[in-house]
């Protein structure tokens, strides 16, 4: 009780609050959710196999795990790897340092990961969940002797708009992969995998094009949407659309993150033969 004698009735120390609700639940669940994604992604990245499935056909079409796209280099000897024609730059090069594991995913995953790590929504939840700064509203967090926010080391967060440009490139590449998934040996068809890989770039686009940096660049940077003629600019309409997506940024962030992992899990299970891909191709 002695602690309650502080001015205003506030006690010092981590997690001190008078909130009787389950304030810890949201940071706990979001923290665990993202941690699970990071663990799975890291595991999948290091596998280097079973990221492609086309039922043995070598013609146009097939399922490619979103974690492995784009395929810059391919090690064809790996089980469940894509045919060499899908590599942007050919076989896994000999000049690649041995330090780098032979897995195409390791060359590209930093792109989308950097976009998510610098995203304003992700920053909110990981500052809360992992840095306890603060753990929840009106709950005492870790007191720092000289708190600097995002002015010192974390000034790096300002690269977010550059990671946005990379993310837009990934949406384009994954859209092509979605198109690819509707073909097998050059024949059009639909499989469960096609639907999963088709939804993937849609969710990613909802997340990427609703990002705060894109909202700013697409129109938010203007002070006047109608100047000088008094007519709405195209950028105003774009900004309105982006603002709609932005208002649901948390939804897009989670659904796109879960779905991209689901895409990898599905392709991996089918490629390993643990799961049958129901499709119009009849296999």
């Amino acid at each position: 009780m002695n602690n309650e004698q502080t001015i205003g009735g506030y006690e010092a120390g981590l997690f001190q609050t008078h909130r009787p609700d389950t304030w810890w639940l949201e940071p706990l669940l979001t923290g665990l959710g993202f941690l699970s994604f990071v663990i799975y992604t890291t595991w999948a990245m290091f596998q280097g196999d079973y990221y492609w499935w086309s039922a043995g056909s070598e013609g146009f079409g097939g399922y490619l795990s979103p974690f492995y796209s784009p395929l810059l280099f391919i090690e064809e000897s790996a089980a469940g790897s894509a045919p060499l024609l899908h590599a942007w730059f050919g076989p896994w090069p000999e000049w690649m340092p041995n330090l780098i594991p032979v897995t195409p995913a390791i060359l590209i995953l930093a792109g989308p990961l950097s976009f998510r790590l610098t995203c304003y929504y992700y920053r909110k939840f990981y500052y809360r969940s992992y840095f306890l700064s603060p753990p929840a509203c009106a709950v005492a967090g870790v007191h720092q002797k000289d708190y600097k926010g995002e002015t010192a080391l974390l000034v790096i967060q300002n690269i977010h708009r550059f990671t946005l440009y990379i993310a837009i490139g990934f949406v384009a590449v994954l859209s092509y992969d979605a198109f690819l998934s509707f073909f097998r040996d050059g024949k059009f068809g639909v499989g469960v995998g096609s639907i999963i890989l088709f939804l993937n770039p849609i969710f990613l686009a909802g997340y990427t094009f609703g990002c705060h940096a894109f909202r700013h660049l697409s129109g938010g940077r203007h002070d006047c949407f109608t100047c000088p003629q008094g007519k709405e600019k195209v950028s105003f309409k774009i900004w309105q659309g982006v603002s709609w997506l932005n208002g649901r940024h948390m939804f897009w962030a989670w659904i796109s993150m879960i779905w991209v992992a689901l895409g990898d899990i599905y392709v991996r299970l089918v490629a390993k033969g643990y799961w049958t891909d129901f499709s119009t191709w009849g296999n």
Partner: peptide, 30 residues
Amino acid sequence: GMCNITRCCTDVCPEHIQITDNGIIPLKER
């Protein structure tokens, strides 16, 4: 740069102003 956009300001605003999304983040982008 001191704001780490944890959005508690938006959560408590009785006027429901989107302080973080419509105010602070656009300024950070500028």
